[in-house]
Every structure is written in structure tokens, then in C-alpha cells.
Amino acid sequence: MESVKTIRAVERAFEVLRALQARPQGATLIELKSVTGLSGPTLLRLLKTLIAQQAVRRSPMDQRYRNSIQLQGLTRGMTPSERLADVAAPWLDSLCQQVEWPSDLAIHDRDDDYMTVLESSLRQSRFYVRRAPGRVRVNLLGSAAGTAYLAALTESRRRELVECARLGRDPHNAAVIASGDLERRVQEARRIGYARRARQYRGGGYNKPARDDALHAIAVPIVHADWVVGSLNINWNRRALSEREMVARHLPALRAAARGIGASIADLGILPELPGLEAACAPEELAQLCNSP
């Protein structure tokens, strides 16, 4: 896909729309010319086209150009989950370009005994990772993504979810509970600043037999305004890199991507509508989890 050329006229149209978005009071042709660097004739053609498509309007009162309310209709049908995936996708793509191994954004909803992969860079990675594509269910208690999520929660809520997992269908959760080391791994994640897979968890689909997928993973929570949104991981073949090497090379980039997703949520003001939000643990515990060296 990188060899396919972009359409410059479309890019210019979006430059105009972004310029108008930054100016809710409207903009004149001269102001748009100054901001975008486009010529007057080019701007006039673009504006005429955008007005015809009801993406831009020109006020009869002051003759200033503004984005049309019709633009909102293009995203009105998006579910909260799709909005979050849309926000996260550029960050996952950028992270994959840096790390090369794939990452997943995983979320949890209410009392599910699993995490759901909402967005992934699995297909963008140049490395093969043995995992089904799409919005798969990921183990809650044994995966790095699930552990990072649990580590960011309050103790009372974490205990509730462990009990839900105990009563759930996934045998992998039962194996982790039987080992008795979940709380130790949660505290370890807070101490070292990231979560890893449980030692006894080597992969396997939801409610399916265990299988060694040859992978390892590290993960960090995605937190914004004292709310836990989900978690972000990096998956890799454990024969290719040790955990220590992965952490040394790429943990900062993983954390930066998680912060970037949180910042994008803030910029767009979509936090209240996101699925599965949970209150974060105490600020000092959260700071330790997100900032440990």
C-alpha cells in the first residue's frame, strides 16, 4: 500500500477543513490563504466543492466560511468503541513503525472474564505473530494486557473481577487463580512499571485448550483523568528477544503511545462515552505503575 500515491486535491480539502475547525468563528478567503498557503483560485475551487458537498457553508450574514454541521453526520453512527479504536489506530501504527512487532489495544467491559482486542497493528507488523486477527478475546488474569489493566484498578474492583473470572468459562483464568500469584504480579507490575504474562500462561484462545504460541508480551494501562480505559501491549516471539531487551529498547515508546492515546481522548472530549471505564487506583500507586524506570 505504501507505493499507492495519495490524491493531492483531497489532502488540500482536508487542510481547509482543519483550518476551519480551528476557527469556529469562521474565516475569510484571505485568512484561509494565509493559514493554508494555498493560492486564491485553488481555495475557491476547493471551497465551492466543499460547499456543494455540504461540508462547508458560507454565512450570508458575514460571508465567512465555516465547517458545516453536516460533517457531524458522517460520524454519528460510530459506536463509542469505534471512536476509541479510531483514536488509537494512528498511535498503534506509529508504535509498530518504531518497534516493528505488533501491539494491541485491549479493553474490558463490566464483568467480562476476558479482555477484548479493540484495535491492533498485527497486520502492519513485518514479523509473523501466531494469533487470530480481529477482535479476539484475550485472557484476563494471565495475559500482559489483562494484568496491566488489573494493576491500574482499585483493590476492591480487582477482587470483584477475579471472582468473575473464577466463575467464568475460560480455563486459563482458573489456572492462574490456582497458582496464587496474581496479586504478586500486580504489585510487581506497579514496581517495575509494566505488566508481563503469567509464567504458566503461554497462550490459547478464550475457552479453548492451552497452546504455546511462542509469544511473550509486555503491557501498560491506558489511563486518563483517573479513569482506566484499557491497556496497550507489545507482542513478540520470545526466541527473538528477551524480555529485558524488549523493555530496554521499547518500553518508553509503549508508554508514550499509551499517553498519546489518553491525550487524544482528552482532545476529543470522548471520555464519558467510552466503554468499560473503571476508576483508577490511588494516585501514588498509579504514578508508580506508569512512571517506574
Rank of each mutant, 00 (worst) to 15 (best):
V223P: 07
G205R: 10
R191N: 11
R158P: 07
A219I: 05
R184S: 14
Q187Y: 10
G142R: 01
E160F: 11
A145R: 11
P209Q: 07
D212H: 01
G193K: 00
V220T: 06
L140P: 03
V176S: 04
R135C: 12
S156Y: 12
E155A: 11
R211Q: 13
L182P: 02
K208Q: 14
A144F: 03
S179P: 08
A174K: 11
S156G: 13
L150P: 03
S143T: 02
D212M: 05
R199Q: 15
I177W: 00
E183I: 10
G180M: 06
T154L: 08
A178S: 10
V162C: 15
A217F: 01
I222N: 05
T154F: 03
E160P: 08
C164K: 15
V138K: 04
D212C: 03
A151S: 14
R211W: 15
G203Y: 00
R137I: 07
K208W: 11
R184D: 15
A151D: 00
V186Y: 02
A132C: 10
Y206R: 05
E160G: 14
V162P: 06
T154P: 04
R190Y: 06
Y206G: 08
R169N: 15
N139K: 03
A195I: 01
A132I: 12
V138R: 07
A174T: 10
Y206N: 07
A151W: 01
A175K: 11
R190E: 10
G204H: 07
S156E: 15
L153D: 00
R185G: 01
C164Q: 15
R137L: 10
D170L: 03
E188W: 13
Y206W: 09
Y149F: 13
I218E: 04
A217I: 02
T147W: 07
R158I: 08
A198M: 11
A145P: 08
R159E: 15
P209Y: 07
G168C: 06
V162R: 10
P221M: 03
R202Q: 13
L215T: 09
D170I: 01
L141F: 02
R196V: 15
G205H: 08
A148C: 06
R157P: 05
